[in-house]
Design a protein around this nucleic acid. Structure first.
Lengths: 196, 196
DNA sequence: GATAACTAGTACGCCAGTGTACGAGTTAGC
DNA sequence: GCTAACTCGTACACTGGCGTACTAGTTATC
């Protein structure tokens, strides 16, 4: 279920245009979650029919774009050092995650709309697991609170990240300040305000 | 711009069906943000045409539903005591707000999709202002952090509330626990985790 | 009880976006 | 350089929801 393509043999040019289409999809959907298949085709410099030649339906294309974005994210997040002080590790993780989320917030929205319930989460487990593990580790050392469900904390972090992206989009948050704001918010969220 | 109806004279039965339609709209949209005009009409026990007799377009109907929901919210929130200890006041405010948000989360989403950018915010200022004022007061007394923009804090609270509603909808958060979780999360968010 | 307001059904035009069909041109790969 | 794969345009069917038109029946309200 990794990179085993359903169609074993494909011509090089096909491969190339698929790449371009997926890239375009990522790009368009990251700006407008309702981007049309036609929009994406145009952005890829390709006919709409070509798109349908490789992706049966729009949802399928959205999923491909998402998977690609997640893969890129994994690559980036994989390099983050999660050892050592839990809070500092969280800061590092957030610093890296933030850019990714900010960039792909709309894409996430798109996926949420067309993918079957739960599918997104399924694809997204990698990132979520990373956060969850770190939180658990932090809890064990009393660096993070334990009075709230871990699931909630993990998702709350997501909501904050997503929210910050939204705020920027609406011009209510200074992009230059965002990373700091997000980190500060999350850190305190993970700390009980009235004792551990 | 308050309750000055554009049409001065209306028959009693018309008034009644408008009420029923708006109520139905609130109800339907609170469950499915994509609810159709027809769905709403059916739920109101009324023909689709009757709906169009009172609301020119779907967005107009959505707005009416939203306004009604907000009015109900105002009524409830107006009774909350915001004096005294800022943190306790915030807890009280959250306890009341929570139920409202949980109930109308989907309606908010619907509004966000069809209303022109910013319109929602415009209608929603009442609630936002209340939170903002309270936060400012809390900051003045060093009860709340001052290292982050107030605007952000206010909106972050919204995102958390909205997120919690989503989590419940997906069965990932126990509704009975939600109020406590939300309150705890927000309270710590409003407190700097490394000194005021 | 006359009148205007309201309800409501059916039928329609419209629109945008999806996905299909066909067919002609182009290009990679052996 | 032959063949199969690929590209891509035009055209079209389909869908679902919106909003309009017309018409007939009902019901407040004076």
């Amino acid at each position: 279920m990794s990179s085993a393509d359903p169609r074993p043999r494909r011509r090089a040019d096909a491969e190339r245009s698929i790449t371009r289409i997926v890239a375009a999809a990522r790009d368009c959907l990251s700006r407008d979650p309702d981007a049309t298949v036609d929009d994406i085709a145009k952005a890829a410099g390709v006919g709409r029919m070509t798109v349908y030649g490789h992706f049966r339906t729009r949802p399928e294309l959205v999923e491909a774009a998402l998977v690609e974005a997640l893969r890129a994210g994994e690559r980036m997040l994989g390099g983050v050092d999660l050892t050592g002080d839990a809070r500092q590790a969280m800061s590092r993780l957030l610093a890296s995650s933030w850019a990714l989320v900010a960039e792909s917030a709309a894409l996430l929205t798109a996926a949420q709309r067309v993918l079957p319930e739960g599918r997104l989460r399924e694809l997204h487990t990698g990132a979520a697991d990373r956060v969850e593990q770190l939180i658990r580790r932090g809890q064990a050392v009393r660096a993070f609170r334990s009075d709230l469900p871990v699931t909630w904390l993990v998702n709350a972090v997501q909501y904050i990240l997503h929210g910050a992206a939204e705020e920027i989009r609406r011009g209510r948050l200074d992009p230059a300040d965002a990373s700091r704001v997000v980190t500060a918010t999350v850190q305190s969220m993970l700390t009980s305000s009235s004792g551990a």
